[in-house]
Design a protein around this nucleic acid. Structure first.
Lengths: 238, 238
DNA sequence: GGTACTATGTGTTTAATGAACACGAAGTCA
DNA sequence: TGACTTCGTGTTCATTAAACACATAGTACC
C-alpha cells in the first residue's frame, strides 16, 4: 500500500471513481499420464481468441481469496475435482496482454494425480462456461490464447525446480504407488531418464516414503512393493 | 483468462459494470548498511494505519507495466534512485487485508547498494506523498501497517534463497568492492558468519568476479584488492 | 626505525554428496 | 521347464562442502 492520500482515500469512499484493471486468476493444471506431462486447456467460445485453447481461469470475486478463486475456476470450467496441490505462480500484468481492457492475471499452478489416482484424476468435462476441455501433452501444445504460452512455460520451470528440493511429486500420484511409478513421474517432468538405483536410494533416504503392506502385481513379472508418502504435503528435502 | 462470455464480454465493452478489486504494487526495498540488512519504510499520513510505518507502494496506472509501477512508486515515495535489482515477489490478495476495500497487491522486492555505492545509495527523502521515509534494520522493525510484516518476511526468505544460487549480491554493492565487503553482505543477509577462505574460493571459482587494477587502502593495515562483477545482472551459479 | 596492530590473502584435509554402472530375484506365460 | 519382463539391490569414483592457521602488507605509535 502507499501513503498517497488522494487515490486511496477516494478508493475507500468511492471505489468507482477511478479506472482500474480487471483481476483474473488463470490455472495451469498439470498431470502425468501416458508417460507424458499434460496441461489442462479449455477452448474459448467467445472473442477474443475465439475457438483457441486457453488456460482455465476467470474473474476474482469481490470477497474471494485468490487461492479459492483459482480452485473454483479450475473446477467450474473443467469439471476436475479439487487439485491436490495449488500454488501461486506469478502475476502477469503487461498492459497489452488482453485486447479488451487492462487485465492483471494472478497465475496458479495445480497438480493432479494421473489416471488411476482416485477421484482427483477424473476426466475433464466442459464446465459451465467452457466449450470444451481436455488434457494436452506439454510438448505438443496448440497455439494458446493471450500470453498463456508464457504462463505455461513459467509453470513448467517452477515445477521442475520444485521437484528437486521438495516432495511435491506426491500430488501427481495416487495414495499408493510403486517406486517405478514415482520414478516415471520424475522422468516425465524432467524430460530425462534417471538411474534407477540412485533414484531409489535417494527417495528412501529422504524419509518421505513408507512401504505399505501391499504389492502391485501386474503383467508377467515380479510384483512391486507399494509405498505411500508419509505426509501428503510438500516438504523441503535436505 | 477464462471463456466465460458474460463478464468478459461485459468487461470489454463496459469496464465499470462490475465491482472490481483495486490493484497496487508494494515494494520491499532492501540494502545492507552498518553490518545489518535494512528495509525502506514510509510513515503513513492518512487513515487507515495513520502514523504507522508501511512499505512504499501505490496504485497501478491503467497503462502501466507492473514492474514500471514498482520502480515508479519506489522513487516517488522515497526519493531513492532506481533500484539495481527489482523482481516480483508474490501477490497478496486476502479479502480483509485492507479495511477500505478489496485491494490486491503485487509485491516486488528491490535491492540497492549501501552507503558508498554511488548515486543509487542516496538517502531517502520523504517523497511527494510520504510523510517520512527511512531505512529500518530488518531485525528491529516497528509494527507495520496492513499485512506488510508478512510481505517483508516473504522478501527476506526469497533473498536468502536467491543468494545461494545466483549472483544477486551485485545489486547490493557498488561497482567496485573488496572480497571482505562482499562477504559481509552475505553474512548480513544470511545472519551467520562464513569462513573466509571457503567464501573467497567459491566466489572466485564461480567466474562472476574480476579484479580491477585498483586497491582499497583504509585503516592501518594491508590494502585490499578491488573486484567487480563481470556481469551486472543476476546469473545462475553452478 | 622498530615494534605493535589489524585486516588481507592463501592450501590441505576430511566428510558428504552425486554419478556411473550390472546382475540375480520373482513372478507369468507358452 | 525355459523364456520373458520388471523388481530390487552396492560399490566405486568424482565432485562438492566444511573445517581449520599463519604469513603478509600496510599504518600508527613510541
Amino acid at each position: 500500500m502507499n501513503t498517497k492520500s488522494e487515490p486511496e482515500t477516494a478508493a475507500a469512499y468511492d471505489p468507482g471513481a477511478f479506472d482500474r484493471p480487471s483481476v483474473t486468476v488463470d490455472v495451469v493444471a498439470l498431470t502425468a499420464r501416458d508417460d507424458r506431462l499434460h496441461v489442462l486447456l479449455v477452448r474459448r467460445g467467445v472473442w477474443p481468441f475465439e475457438g483457441q485453447w486457453a488456460l482455465p481461469g476467470g474473474f476474482v470475486k469481490m470477497d474471494e481469496d485468490l487461492y479459492a478463486a483459482a480452485q473454483r475456476e479450475l473446477c467450474e470450467e473443467t469439471g476436475v475435482p479439487a487439485a491436490t496441490y495449488l500454488e501461486q505462480l506469478y502475476t502477469f500484468g503487461a498492459p497489452g496482454r488482453d485486447p479488451r481492457t487492462r487485465v492483471i492475471s494472478v497465475a496458479y499452478y495445480a497438480l493432479l494425480p494421473g489416471p488411476g489416482g482416485g477421484p482427483a484424476c477424473a476426466e475433464p468435462e466442459a464446465g459451465s462456461d467452457a466449450a470444451e476441455a481436455r488434457w494436452w501433452p506439454v510438448d505438443a501444445l496448440p497455439p494458446l490464447a493471450f500470453d498463456h504460452g508464457e504462463i505455461v512455460a513459467t509453470a513448467l520451470s517452477r515445477l521442475r525446480a520444485k521437484l528437486g528440493y521438495t516432495s511435491v511429486a506426491y500430488a501427481l500420484l495416487p495414495e499408493e504407488f510403486t517406486l517405478s511409478e514415482l520414478q516415471r513421474v520424475y522422468e516425465v517432468i524432467l524430460a530425462r531418464p534417471l538411474d534407477k538405483r540412485n533414484f531409489r536410494k535417494k527417495m528412501l533416504a529422504a524419509d518421505i516414503l513408507e512401504p505399505t503392506p501391499r504389492q502391485r502385481r501386474v503383467g508377467a513379472h515380479r510384483p512391486a512393493q507399494l509405498y505411500r508418502f508419509t505426509r501428503r504435503e510438500a516438504v523441503l528435502l535436505d
